[in-house]
C-alpha cells in the first residue's frame, strides 16, 4: 500500500489537492480498487480501432470574429473572494 499511497499522492500533487493523512489513505484504497477495474480493459482487443473523442460531432463549428461584451462585469468581479480595485487578489508568488 505504501507504493500506492505515494503514487496517489503524486496525483494529488498534480491535481493541486491537499489531502490529510486519513483522506490520503482512504482515497488511495478506493483508487486502487478502481485502478484494478480499469485494468480489465486490457482484455479488450481494440488496437485496430480509432478512439472516439467526440460522440456525434458532424460539422465545423466556428463563430464570427465580432465583439459582444458581457454586460454584468461587476457581478463577476464581486464574486471574487478577494478583490482590490478592479483586480483579483492572491498572495504573491514566492
Amino acid at each position: 500500500m505504501a507504493r500506492a499511497l505515494d503514487e496517489w499522492s503524486l496525483m494529488a500533487e498534480l491535481a493541486r489537492l491537499e489531502l490529510d493523512d486519513n483522506e490520503a489513505l482512504r482515497l488511495a484504497q478506493e483508487a486502487e480498487r478502481m485502478r484494478e477495474l480499469f485494468l480489465t480493459m486490457s482484455r479488450a482487443d481494440v488496437d485496430s480501432l480509432e478512439p472516439t473523442t467526440h460522440a456525434l460531432a458532424r460539422e465545423n463549428r466556428v463563430r464570427k470574429d465580432v465583439v459582444d461584451s458581457f454586460e454584468n462585469i461587476d457581478v463577476l468581479l464581486n464574486a471574487s473572494p478577494e478583490l482590490e480595485d478592479e483586480f483579483f487578489l492572491i498572495p504573491n508568488v514566492l
Binding site: E84, E86, F87, L89, I90, P91, V93
Partner: peptide
C-alpha cells in the same frame, strides 16, 4: 496577467 505588488499579486484577465 499577474502584477506583483509586494506580498500580493494582482490578476487582470
Amino acid at each position: 496577467k499577474m502584477i506583483h505588488a509586494g506580498d500580493v499579486t494582482l490578476l487582470d484577465f
